[in-house]
Amino acid sequence: MYAQMIKSEATQDDPEKLAAFQARIDRGEKIEPKDWMPEGYRKTLIRQIGQHAHSEIVGQLPEGNWITRAPSLERKVNLLAKVQDEAGHGLYLYCAAETLGVSRDALTEMLLDGRMKYSSIFNYPTLTWADMGAVGWLVDGAAIMNQVPLQRTSYGPYARAMVRICKEESFHQRQGYHLLLKMMAGTDDQKRMCQDALNRFWYPALMMFGPSDKDSVHSAQSMAWKIKMNTNDELRQKFVDETVPQAEYLGLTVPDDGLVWNDARGHYDFTQPDWSEFYNVLQGNGPCNAERMAARRKAWDDGAWVRDAMLAHGQKKAARRKAAE
């Protein structure tokens, strides 16, 4: 999963250095951890990669909600492996952020005290088994739209993490889609679950790309730095164009009366999500914000004694080894 609404940091560096840096980016060179970089670039990337990492970790929760209720052994293994992949993505991304000089623990503290955010989508509940299909298909699908271009992002460690993540995300998306295909070939109850899942996840998935470009104030600098590769509206349109035929193939109805193919544009016209809902979710008023944060805080607090013990054991072991020498 990915980052949204990343504010680019203003930068106050030597204009000559800045120009040389921008020239490197314009030539398509990768910026590596030891290279000089503007403070604003570093801070914006920390915020973006950190938010992306947090999204992976918080994103484990809505799907984790169904691991113990998966309806077959195979589905259980697939879902568990998928959620485990997300933890792995979190790990690569925290490592990428660490190359910018911020520790994983520091980022976690910032998530838990509200200084950093995670993607709005994970504040929605997963209510039936079809949601596991809808999350894979729509949520991972939207994430892929955003992340595929980021494989070419200017910051080397982020680009390389993204290559690996994209491979797994596209597998997850197919898995989600197949789950729905199977259910749509099933009973009326199963079909109803699928339609209900699409109804609930369609607009939240569109919101994942962030507000409309005309309201998105942070894009220009990030795009110049190639840490944002496309505008929000471009990506949202691409997602709608690719997803609508997939919904039709499933036999599902996209919950948008305004959805219509526009021949002149060569794209679908569609209704924008309710942006007041989006801003509400960002402000903490989504259906699951409180639960998600409480679950993360509890995991972190409950795990404190384990982390302390492992550290203490490591130190004791090292001391014993030294004493034995």
Binding site: I57, Q60, L61, G64, I67, T68, L73, E74, K76, V77, L80, A81, V83, Q84, A87, G88, G90, L91, Y94, R104, A295, K298, A299, D302, G303, A304, V306, R307, M310
Partner: peptide, 28 residues
């Protein structure tokens, strides 16, 4: 598998899920 997503540290979360995956695979 009940631990998935709420482990004390990310590496442990992943390792517990790995063990769970092995065991469910064996059960199958």
């Amino acid at each position: 598998s009940e631990w998935c997503g709420v482990g004390p540290v990310l590496e442990e979360d992943i390792a517990l899920a790995n063990t769970a995956l092995d065991l469910i695979g064996q059960a199958k």
